[in-house]
């Protein structure tokens, strides 16, 4: 793993975030998981400013093990909830580099995701926080946090990562 100490080009980061989003648009979980480090995690908190995924309930909190299970479940022919097509359109904006340390970039952005599932179109919106590490001239995701603006509201099924 090589470390890039100079400030990265914001356009490279944006392109990386767009690439991730387009894998979720389809969704292609096989390729999406590959964008994460081995210790990578994905977190969708259930309250504003949630500090802790272990002692407080979350909507999602997956490490690689759960991502691997989810990837297999998502294409299982007998999963009734997966009988319906899932298509998403993610828009990402307001991308900012919040901090740079030796081996990690903290990037925040705003997102809107329109999800089509089971004959219904649902709009999700909120803020992404990505912890990125530089790997072989590109990036990998060590942690992605998805703060929905309605995280503590009454929500229906969220069938796939946003």
């Amino acid at each position: 793993m090589s470390t890039d100490t100079k400030k990265p080009d914001i356009r490279d980061i944006e392109t990386f975030l767009y690439d991730e989003a387009s894998l979720l648009d389809r969704p292609d979980l096989d390729k999406w998981i590959e964008m994460y480090t081995d210790d990578g995690t994905y977190w969708m908190p259930a309250i504003e400013d949630q500090e802790d995924p272990l002692n407080h309930i979350s909507i999602y909190y997956d490490d690689r093990v759960l991502m691997e299970i989810r990837r297999r479940n998502f294409v299982h022919p007998r999963a009734a909830s997966k009988d319906y097509k899932v298509r998403c359109s993610h828009i990402i904006s307001n991308v900012r580099i919040e901090s740079i340390t030796d081996d990690e970039l903290l990037v925040t952005s705003n997102f809107q995701c329109v999800m089509y599932y089971n004959n219904k179109q649902t709009l999700y919106a909120g803020k992404y926080t990505h912890k990125l590490v530089a790997v072989n001239g590109g990036f990998k995701i060590r942690h992605k946090r998805v703060d929905l603006i309605n995280c503590d509201g009454v929500l229906g099924t969220i069938i796939i990562y946003i």
Partner: peptide, 19 residues
């Protein structure tokens, strides 16, 4: 908490199949 997230959450792989 883990149990609720795995089984009951709207993002889980169990509750949505029941629903």
């Amino acid at each position: 908490i883990l149990y609720s997230r795995l089984i009951n959450s709207n993002g889980s792989m169990v509750g949505p199949d029941d629903l």
